[in-house]
Nucleic acid binder design. Sequence first.
DNA 1: CAGTGGTCTAGACCACGCC
DNA 2: GCGTGGTCTAGACCACTGG
Lengths: 242, 242
Amino acid sequence: MPIYRDIQAELLRRISTGIWPTGTTIPHETALAAEFDCTRTTIGRALRELASAGLIERKRKAGTKVIARSGRDAIVTISPVREEVRAAGQDYGYALVARDQGKAPEAVRAAMGLSARDTVLHVQCLHFADGQPHQFEDRWINLATVPAAKGQSFEEISPNEWLIREVPYSRARHVFRAARPAEQERNTLRLAPDEWVFVVERVTWLEASAITYARLLHPADRFQLITRDPEAMRQSPPPSAE
Amino acid sequence: MPIYRDIQAELLRRISTGIWPTGTTIPHETALAAEFDCTRTTIGRALRELASAGLIERKRKAGTKVIARSGRDAIVTISPVREEVRAAGQDYGYALVARDQGKAPEAVRAAMGLSARDTVLHVQCLHFADGQPHQFEDRWINLATVPAAKGQSFEEISPNEWLIREVPYSRARHVFRAARPAEQERNTLRLAPDEWVFVVERVTWLEASAITYARLLHPADRFQLITRDPEAMRQSPPPSAE
DNA sequence: CAGTGGTCTAGACCACGCC
DNA sequence: GCGTGGTCTAGACCACTGG
């Protein structure tokens, strides 16, 4: 175990056991370096990660303080549908529902920050798990950013997977909510009469230009999102909740 | 701007523009240090953050490769209800519904990893936004870990806020899903006849011992969770999606 | 303006894991 | 084995900001 990890663990212990309660100004880097018998660089590394994890706040001259974590961060990993289904030990299936090029509706333009004259590709498709509809993907792709999408039929590969391959990096924003399904959605997903859908909305950007906006609808009766703690320091893994 | 940020930006550019497509092995730290005329330490810092952001993968001897970001991480910040309501510009209200000490039901014991003889405190309460029910909090507190909870009536302060104050730092696991409300929940939250609830489930631990298990129920018609990107490198802030 | 964190260097040794 | 990343040192200068 690297030294800076040991130091992190010890500092974390002092915070979590109340030795350094919220608001405490902890010793300077120099003092800590002396205590742990290492260089200030190493202390700095340990503290930097604690700071980015939101446990402490560092200000020049003012020093380092333990801050109140009023909000809790949770990390949701949103895997491609295929992997998600496979990971659950189910068979994956895919079907294209519709593909259409043109103008985006106002709501989509707003979400993607497009002007009225931008053209987009609208793709609707369905992902199956063991033959059951698992996710309805309703997606708009900005053709200005990803012109290559024009040449893709999306009959064999889902826009989801194709985009992952095509666009190496992007920034994303997600919204999670539950909603009443529209008629088409209810039928396509074969929902129970009173069943709602769990919606994951996602907008991604490449640098400053929008790539795609997607609404991913799941039968709410058999879907949930599980999060993990913001990692950074993994010392005592949380006991498996099963 | 620090040098390592400049380097990150340049490397990011090479990745996002396809100069280094997915799968590329990029130059060694030593080579990059020569190119950018700095030390290997500085290159290492730049690369370390790109790696933790999931853009590259580093292996000794094998080198550093650009990887496909199949899964996208999103960070959800779950604020205390009071703050959440206040942030929305609404009036916050609180009411205790029930408080009861005893054994936990099997499902709760399993989630918290408790044995059959552990005693827990069961608290139900309601949070209001502008007089409307906003969240129904159904919570179990492990009295072995937080004995001080026995002395709290929770008539004035919600368990949520009290625990944040009481337990300095802890680890959490969340589950998000949508569910049909039980009869009591439907009435308490004054839901529309067909309305579902958006459920946030949370288990928190202090080190290895469970602190609390909570089910936070929201009227699905007026609730959503918004995520932000895993930070690390903030260069071009995402265009505001409004 | 003085103390604190932020960054960087030049070098070193080590540990992992392909070949 | 041996090349690569992982960590650490000892020191330096700088930038911010609170007193």
